[in-house]
Amino acid sequence: MKADIPGKPGFNFGDAAMVPVRFAMELVDPPLRWLQRTAGLGGMATFFLLPNMLIFGIFVLLPFFINFAYSMTGGAALFLPDRNFVGADQYARLFDCSNYLDPNSCAEDTFWTAVGNTGWFVLLQVTLMIGVSLVTALILNRDLRARSFWRAVFFFPVLLSPVVVGLIWKWILQRQGLLNFGLYGLGFEPHAWLNDRNWSFAAAVGVSIWAHMGFYTLILLAGLQAIPKDLYEAAEMDGTKPTRVFLRITLPLLAPNLLVVIVLVLIRAVQIFDEVYVLTGGGPGTSTLFLTQYIYETGFAAQLRNPGLAAAASILMGAVLVVLTLLQLSLGRSSEKKGDRK
């Protein structure tokens, strides 16, 4: 986007509704003029930046740092000064396993179940999500009538809240739901999908793809549309086979976008919580218990709350996310550079 400078601003501050706003803005002007005179332009820059930095500082940076302190304390007390220092005990407890391949042999077996579930979820969801979004983006990039309509169709669920997504599918997958109705018509017995360990996991994967694929399709489609058309025309003139065009033109030129999307999907998949929590509540048993839910329940919802343990688990998850985000930023930067060279 680029600002265009019209003769008259597009956002008309003269509107009647803006009169009180205008009044308030003029009211704060005299004290700010005084501030400008005393503090200078640099001071004004600080003034403009301050509210944002304060909120960032208090609600993001401060918690980020004291999270480490929390992870080294024990007990159920909420405030840090009331908590007793236990060193690396919480981490030791998380890693206390006799066999790392079997969650049941660990002191914190639910943590390892959550780690295992999240691992499988990430693997399955990222692969399928990339596949489905890529195919959709390729199809939307074809010579279609009403492309923006079709794009909107796939984008629709992205805007729905996770709670609504969870409830929509809970309603469809329940015993008397639409899916069983369809299968019943084909002669199958009704099945309580969400009470089945394997099917509820599959539902978690499928529903999260349904809810977010439109977002990634959009980014991939933007990437596809940025590929110069003359490359395809040249290939057509040479009589190149479509598969070869895809492998030699589309895929290499889409690669930067594709990599960014893969990392974005990964980052989101590691944190999966909301829609699955509403859909299955982590069950049946612990079959759809994921890391964020483990942290939430350990820190807030369990009978015996253990904020220290939750903090330690969240730091481990944060470490994974930091690596993935740095990867994304470096990929984003390298693809930006490529764009500049063009």
Partner: peptide
């Protein structure tokens, strides 16, 4: 700093954020 906060999603800081 602002860029760094992209790396700190809610699920990572919910315990200390709650106390603050």
């Amino acid at each position: 700093l602002i860029l760094a906060t992209l790396m700190v999603p809610l699920s990572v800081i919910m315990v200390p954020l709650y106390s603050i």
